[in-house]
Computed example of a mutant assay.
Amino acid sequence: MKTINTINPSTMRSNAIKVLGLLAATAVFTSCDNDDDISAENEEEVITTVEYTLTSTTDATNVVVFTSVDADGEGPLAPVETVTGTLMASTVYDGSIKFLNELESPAEDITVEVAEEADEHEVFYIDSITDLTVAKVDTDANGNSLGLDTTFTTGAAGTGTLTIVLRHEPLKPNDGTLLNAGGETDVQVEFDLVVQ
């Protein structure tokens, strides 16, 4: 007589559910690991120092430096802003900006990373003097504005403020305003502006 083995359908269903459960658990653990790696990669840089240097295109001795130093990074101390040199009326300046993390020793130059990831960054310059213009002269690989290098043109004498903002992952291209750019602010500083 021939013996026929039969498989109980409820046992098959139970085993299938166990296997599917193990596969699902593996997928969850794997995706958690990947998320952790991504967040570590995109961790925001600490920027303690912003230094914006303007050099007159007609008088190399006319140099103006705007410096903001936040000695404790994201700590409770407010940044200290200083301006050295004199901005002259009706003058064109070549501008360059640096971003540093001086909590590191030696200081880490974040400007290098911004330049390397130009498509993910943009520097914005907002001033409150009507006849002063700041034009970005450098671009990312797609031809969109970056703003590490600028042309800074003064008009009549006056006073106001200059705000500098570094944005991470802004919308590109944009209309040049923070409102339209989106993204996240890596650092924002404001200086008193005097044109003589």
Rank of each mutant, 00 (worst) to 15 (best):
D109S: 06
S105M: 09
F66L: 10
T130E: 14
L100D: 05
S128T: 15
L87S: 13
P76Q: 08
G73T: 06
G95P: 03
T130L: 10
L87F: 15
T91C: 13
F124Q: 00
T130W: 05
A107T: 12
V64P: 05
E122P: 00
D59L: 07
E102F: 02
S105C: 07
L100G: 01
S90C: 04
T61A: 15
A107R: 08
V64K: 00
L87I: 13
F99A: 00
E117D: 15
I110Q: 01
I110R: 02
V83R: 11
D119W: 00
T57E: 13
T84C: 10
L132W: 07
T57L: 12
V134A: 14
T82R: 10
A115T: 08
S96M: 07
L100S: 07
G95W: 01
P106D: 07
T67G: 07
T67P: 04
I110L: 06
T82P: 11
T130Q: 11
I97Q: 04
D94W: 01
T67C: 06
S96Q: 12
G85P: 06
F66Y: 15
N62G: 10
I97R: 02
T67H: 05
Y93R: 10
A118C: 08
N62S: 14
P106L: 05
L87E: 11
T67W: 02
T133M: 13
V80Q: 15
L87W: 09
K98T: 10
A78K: 11
D127T: 12
E116M: 12
E120T: 03
G95C: 09
E116H: 04
L132A: 10
A135W: 04
A115S: 12
F99V: 01
E102L: 03
D59I: 05
Y125E: 05
H121A: 02
E113V: 01
V64F: 04
D70P: 06
L77V: 09
